[in-house]
Amino acid sequence: MEQNGRAENAVVVRNLVKVYGKEKTAVDHVSFSVKPGEIFGLIGPDGAGKTSIFRVLTTLLLPDGGSATVDGLDVVKDYKQIRNRVGYMPGKFSLYQDLSVEENLNFFATVFDTTVEANYHLIKEIYDQLEPFKKRRAGKLSGGMKQKLALCCALIHKPVVLFLDEPTTGVDPVSRKEFWEMLKQLKTQNITIVVSTPYMDEANMCDEIALIQSGRLLSVDTPGNIVKSYPEQLYAVKADNMHKLLKLLRSYDKVMNSYAFGEFAHVSFKDPQVNISEVTDYLKQEGLADIELRTTAVTIEDSFIKLL
């Protein structure tokens, strides 16, 4: 199974089960695999089981069923070796607030038995932005800067697989974009990245994604394929009164699915051959104006809603 000393799949998860207490099933028979060097996104809302999966893969939790390997190593048996090979940025990771940027980085490098110099090329792009503040204590950094430092710390030992648990939660759209740019950069360094996020729009930045809800996987594929497999034609509708439009669509018998989507409402119809002008006329009759109805491209969010 080994190729060039590297496992065929960076991460393999088979029928993974994690139960808390007696009945709370956090992860329910989840299976997926991540190819080396790809960005794999675990996409779902809070409480879907993302963090539990991450913790099993980083050997912090024992699975209650199924198995998992990271870089070909078993998460239960070979936990010590795995701990040498993975980088992990937990959701609430806050660094050492009372240590400076430099000290944090040096500390984590040493803990992982390496030096900052040895793998500086990996973090250079990111660290350059932190360099002016290297003497500043981590607690005094801005949110975006903290996140960059945390990423540097997780990368400093050149991990084979990097696990990022909700790195962009609560972060504004501009910083989120920057963060994903950094991940793309890392991909070129041949590091496998497993990342989780509740933001559906970030799915497109991944090579492959798993949609997850309530501990179950809804779908695992490339974002393109997931979108392609959407069964109906999707339409976007707009009118002068959005709230009224949504209510009308919901009670309209030709409609299969309808929901707000930004400035539009997304709609799919029961009849694939639906007459669009008929729908427009109906909406006009009900008192709406400025109606705009057209076909639209499916997004991951649409797929997610459909799969729920």
Binding site: P45, D46, Q213, I305, L308
Partner: peptide, 14 residues
Amino acid sequence: TGGVDPVTRRQFWD
């Protein structure tokens, strides 16, 4: 609505 799934998010907006 931070971290809430897309369907619940919409119910929230309702």
